Simulated scan of single mutants.
Amino acid sequence: MANESIARLRQMFEDEIANNADLYHSIDIERVRTEDWQVKRFLLDQPDMDEKKAFDNLCKALQWKKSFGVHDRTDQSFPKEFWELNSVEIYGRDNENRIIQWELYRNQRTFPELNDITRQFISHCLERVDRTAGEDGFIIITDSNGAGLANVDMDVARYKISIIDYYPGGLRGQYVIDLPWLLNAAFKIILSFMSERLKKIVSTMKSNELSKCVDSKFIPVCLGGTREKNAFPNDLIPLDQHSSLNLSEQFLDRFYKLHKLPRPRKM
């Protein structure tokens, strides 16, 4: 029945693109045609395997990807500091064979000048880890040690939660490590933004508990593991050199000063 449902959804999608091909990216069109998981995930997301709802959600997700330019950016589209300050890495698998994306919370800051590219970065990272994981799914581990209220941005939190729905069956767990007591109230508010289903896969734990679900060779030393190397993409360009962002010298000086980083170069 599942294979028959997949075939029917594919045909529904072919009918859709016959009339509205410009709403979809060619990458997503090809994935629907050739990869069962890119169709099945929307069926499994429906408790009753409702094909109409699955089709509607499939179209909504792929239209969002096209309109937001998810496939138009690469790792190098984003400043080196985004990757390194937030320690965004895909590295290792947990004990249930799910890909792990690692993140660091204490360096996250909100800058109006970076609102658009921040959301693009969040979307890019979600697409990237989802694509790496495939049907096995992935988990996100967030190191919140040392974070404070200055790191909390409810709009960004809402955005992260809202786009998870475009990747049904992808995120299998989110672990918040060493949550400071000062952020307990903010964490409860963020949980209130989530669906009941999403809340069930979010949990907090201490860093010394992490080895119960992840091999220590994948865990960074800062979280009690043995991994010393990082897994950032290659050929990243510093924020200072992303001229397309049209950032002022005053802003760049403020950004690097806040994060206690030297400017890579002066204009």
Score class of each variant (00 low, 15 high):
Arg119Tyr: 01
Arg172Asn: 08
Glu51Phe: 00
Trp64Ile: 03
Arg109Asp: 08
Ala150Ile: 10
Ile201Val: 15
Lys206Arg: 10
Gln63Asp: 02
Ser144Ala: 14
Asn20Gln: 09
Asp28Trp: 05
Asn184Cys: 15
Val39Asp: 13
Arg265Ala: 04
Gly148Asn: 11
Ile201Pro: 10
Leu239Lys: 02
Lys80Ile: 12
Asp130Phe: 04
Lys266Phe: 09
Leu182Pro: 15
Ala133Phe: 06
Asn19Phe: 09
Pro233Ala: 08
Arg119Val: 01
Trp102Thr: 03
Arg263Cys: 05
Ser243Gln: 07
Leu245His: 04
Leu23Cys: 09
Lys52Ser: 07
Ile122Glu: 01
Gly134His: 00
Asp215Asn: 15
Gly173Arg: 01
Glu14Met: 14
Tyr105Arg: 10
Thr226Met: 00
Glu51His: 06
Arg172His: 12
Arg31Thr: 08
Glu209Ile: 00
Asp94Asn: 15
Val88Glu: 13
Ile139Met: 06
Lys53Gln: 08
Asn86Cys: 12
Arg8Gln: 14
Arg98Val: 10
Met205Trp: 09
Gly225Trp: 09
Ala231Leu: 10
Phe42Pro: 02
Arg128His: 10
Leu171Asp: 11
Glu14Cys: 12
Arg227Ser: 00
Val32Gly: 03
Ala2Cys: 00
Glu228Leu: 00
Arg93Asp: 13
Phe42Glu: 08
Gly173Thr: 05
Ile6Thr: 12
Leu179Asp: 13
Lys257Ile: 14
Asp116Gly: 01
Ala54Pro: 11
Glu84Asp: 12
Tyr256Leu: 11
Ser195Gly: 10
Lys257Asn: 15
Glu89Lys: 04
Asn208Gly: 07
Pro112Trp: 13
Asp136Ile: 04
Glu127Trp: 12
Leu171Asn: 11
Asn97Lys: 13
Ile139Asn: 04
Val70Arg: 03
Val129Met: 06
Ala18Thr: 03
Phe187Ile: 15
Ser203Gly: 15
Glu16Asn: 05
Arg119Asp: 01
Gly148Asp: 11
Gly170Arg: 01
Lys229Trp: 02
Leu23Tyr: 05
Gln76Cys: 07
Glu84Pro: 06
Thr204Ile: 15
Leu236His: 06
Pro47Val: 01
Ser67Ile: 00
Ser87Met: 07
Ser5Glu: 12
Ile163Lys: 07
Met1His: 06
Cys59Asn: 06
Ile27Arg: 10
Ala2Leu: 07
Pro262Ile: 03
Thr118Tyr: 01
Gln76Pro: 03
Gln38Val: 10
Arg119Glu: 07
Lys260Trp: 06
